[in-house]
Design a protein around this nucleic acid. Structure first.
Lengths: 222, 222
DNA sequence: GAGTCACATGACTACCTGGTCACATTCTAC
DNA sequence: GTAGAATGTGACCAGGTAGTCATGTGACTC
């Protein structure tokens, strides 16, 4: 957490520092991000920086917290509607919220993404340990509920699919922003819908579909 | 490419350098990997290193080439059996080959993984541009053939699913090595099979399966 | 023995990093 | 005005980096 001096700063200066820090960590992974650049760009002295933050990690954790808070603003409303959706449409709303967040706050999304890729580093472990239950765990309970309600096949490996669904979340986001990108709302929804339809039904042709457990004559494609 | 002097080296010394370089780039991303450490560990002088390689990038590209060659040893046999499998079982073989490669050559797999995560950097663009058609393109033609043969639903977005299947390849690998790992062959096959079954059939419960194309009166949030 | 050529070497350069610290400045309270 | 606390500052430190280069070495040729 930043020191008190940081919060005593005139708002203008504070947000300037914050903006430059966000930009720096969005553009470079933790070890590559440069305090020198941040202070130069935000027009403060190096010494001042260390009056606001204990060290580089302190700043980074602060930004991670900000990112988390912002993301929660997008996810929380969806979480509260769990009863009004079946599993797949809830997932759809979660994915859509994730994309909305990434579109409105690309720097935060980038920082989070970089962070996720740092799995295995001490920094990662520290943040995860101190902060949050992972998305995996969240999806695991969600998935179990879905099975109990009959929304999802009962013969699946819950742990594995929790992992897969969490990963698919970032995957749809990457695909959307890499390949579809610009015209926001319209295509976004169809992209997400395709993913969700896939989750639900797979891509096997009707005649090729084999019953995994008991018969499930599945959908009849057009 | 390394200079001639490198290939003139006594084999012992050459492989020592190569091993240490592989270990270094497996443990650190490009910018973090240290030539100083490599030369110290392989017991050669800094100056000698620059008689073998033009620069750091030169070494890295060489390792990427080695990794690619090794991986091809595992994938090529599968590629030649395209006629003997339907789409999904071919995919199964490809995934399995990928895991085998990663298990036998974890350092190479790690280097490749790190590299894939560096998407967007100039180095990435350079390697991709000079070397290879991406996995996306490969899966795209494979998928189109599968549709033509009736193995796969005809109403899917081919580009998107090529992307997804390529990504799923690394995903199954990550899941396997993170969560299942140790006892090699047996569980590996069942893990892959679960992924493949999912690709084919999705995870929707039979009664929840809806026709993908027309109507499905969406999910208007309450 | 002299000359030449391939390779080996490590001190060196230029440049970066995160973090410190003695000092200067400004603000607050009396 | 003046004491004292809070804040600002940039030169500086120790330690890292990739890459260079003058010098050394040993083998092979004439």
């Amino acid at each position: 957490m930043p020191k008190e001096t940081f919060f005593n700063l005139p708002q203008e200066k504070r947000t300037a520092i914050r903006q430059e820090a966000i930009a720096e960590f969005a553009a470079h992974p933790f070890n590559q991000a440069s305090i020198n650049r941040i202070v130069a760009r935000s027009g403060i002295a190096k010494g001042s920086f260390y009056q606001y933050f204990a060290d580089k990690k302190d700043l980074f954790l602060y930004l991670m917290q900000l990112a988390g808070e912002k993301k929660l603003e997008y996810m929380a409303p969806v979480m509260q509607q769990t009863d009004q959706h079946d599993f797949f449409s809830l997932l759809r709303e979660l994915y859509v919220a994730g994309i909305r967040f990434a579109r409105k706050h690309p720097e935060f999304a980038e920082i989070s993404k970089r962070f996720m890729e740092s799995k295995g580093t001490p920094l990662y472990e520290e943040v995860i340990a101190n902060n949050m239950p992972t998305a995996y765990e969240f999806f695991e309970t969600l998935l179990q509920q879905a099975i109990d309600r009959g929304d999802v096949r009962a013969d699946i490996d819950v742990r594995m699919f929790a992992y897969l669904i969490a990963s698919l979340n970032t995957l749809v986001l990457e695909y959307y922003s890499e390949r579809v990108a610009q015209d926001y709302d319209e295509k976004m929804l169809t992209t997400v819908d395709k993913f969700i339809d896939f989750l639900r039904n797979g891509i096997g042709a009707p005649q090729a579909a084999m019953p995994p457990s008991q018969d499930r004559e599945s959908f009849t494609a057009a």
